[in-house]
Amino acid sequence: MSTKSPSGLGKYQRLGVHAALIMLCLPFIMPLIWMVSTSLKAPSQIAMKSGESAVAFSAKNLLPNPVKWDNYPKALETVPFAVYLRNTLFLCFFSVIGAVISSAVVAYGFARIRFKGRDSLFYLMLATMCLPGAVTMIPAFALFRWLGWYGTFLPLIVPAFCGNAFYIFLLKQFFATIPEELSEAARIDGASEWRIFRQVMLPLAKPALATCALFQFLGTWNDFFGPLIYINDPTKYTLAYGLQQFLASHGTEWAKLMAGACIFTIPIIILFFFAQKTFIQGIATTGSKG
């Protein structure tokens, strides 16, 4: 919107805009700065002893002094975050593979093959996106329990292999933009649908597949409810669940707790900086196409 462009602004007006934006940013960035800074503080700098009255905020207290790096090894001793990280990555790996591959296959079917009942099934699939999870979770839980999967990772992985309605929708939109002539040429050469999908369509769909992989990774990394109801063995906890358990059991050891929160959060922020474009585009399409 060039009408709003402040190119007409003078130097002091520009400085004013920057000052206002920085003020506005503070409430958004401070909790994260506070999380990192607390994770590196000595206990004496964090909380006053009981009976003391609260201390007003001062710039001196913003940064850790001295910097206690050993809060991290200590946190890892108290809580096996390394084990939780391994479990989380294990789940992320398989659910990303499962969701991306199956969603791509299904999306190709919906986008490129004219079969009977296709459109109604596609609308049915879209409708399931609005279905609140509460309506299906109790029987699904009973089903997994009956299968003997309670307490294993299977209930958190297997459903991913059935595709995800949102990814199928995104990929279908993407496949629909690829010219029909491309697959027609392969068909004349005698290629099967599967080969067209594998060798013509999939390589072209890489950016869309990356968006789905990223969303699925984040979804699994952040998932709290799944591990909460299906995992009962502390050696199988994920980071999300382990962090909540830590808060529940060591609620006042703020430095260790914030160290745990950093271990859980910082990888996501790093991932964001590496995959910024995929992030932003993915989220933007969510809004405009949904």
Binding site: W34, N222, A240, M258, A261, I268, I269, F279
Partner: peptide, 13 residues
């Protein structure tokens, strides 16, 4: 993009 559980723990603090 901060995971909900992390946000919750940080806000409790």
């Amino acid at each position: 993009i901060v995971p909900v559980v992390a946000t919750s723990v940080v806000f409790v603090w």
